[in-house]
């Protein structure tokens, strides 16, 4: 943990180079399928030479939870575009969520897409900043020690301070 987030303007290199572009994302959902888009966008941004930060809030905080990020699931209920096509009545049957999750994982594996854990590692190695929403931690009883290493605990003001200096801001 690095404690309080330092969210000033983008890093400015020496010798008058322009500041880096910045991507600021909000990850608000804690399902397997919705964990991918923010991690893909952030790892791409840093590959382009940008800075990138993701604010994990509400269910999205599960992506940073060390006991949960490897257990994210795909909803089988009320998910008409999901990997298994079930009427809602059957989508609620025990095992349906596990089945939908299994199919999604197989799709990803067959397409040689990294697992969420690998995307987290790739993103961190490239310098993507992970902001853990302090309100979510308080509301959902998540302790700092529950989170993966290298997160900045931040409230909305700190994230907006970071996002205000961003060129692209997206909510997932």
């Amino acid at each position: 943990m690095t404690g309080v987030a330092e969210t000033a303007a983008p890093a400015r290199a020496a010798n008058d180079e322009p500041p880096k572009k910045r991507l600021a994302l909000v990850a608000s959902k804690g399902t397997l399928d919705q964990a991918y888009p923010p991690l893909i966008l952030a790892s791409t941004a840093v590959s382009l030479g940008w800075e990138a930060g993701i604010y994990f809030t509400f269910y999205g905080l599960d992506i940073l939870h060390q006991d949960r990020f490897n257990k994210l699931k795909v909803a089988s209920l009320a998910n008409p575009a999901g990997p298994i096509q079930l009427p809602n009545l059957l989508g609620a049957v025990p095992g349906a969520t596990a089945a939908a999750t299994k199919v999604m994982k197989r799709w990803m594996n067959d397409a040689r897409m990294p697992e969420v854990a690998e995307f987290i590692d790739m993103s961190r190695e490239l310098g993507v900043r992970f902001f853990a929403c302090s309100t979510t931690m308080g509301v959902m009883g998540v302790d700092e020690s529950d989170l993966i290493e290298g997160c900045d605990i931040a409230g909305a003001a700190a994230f907006l301070d970071y996002a205000a200096a961003a060129d692209v801001q997206l909510f997932v």
């Binding site: 893909i40 790892s43 791409t44 840093v46 590959s47 382009l48 030479g49 397409a111 040689r112 897409m113 990294p114 790739m122």
Partner: peptide
Amino acid sequence: SGLLCPLPVYKTA
């Protein structure tokens, strides 16, 4: 070959 976005960009970088 065989890799989808974002892996080609990531590996190229």
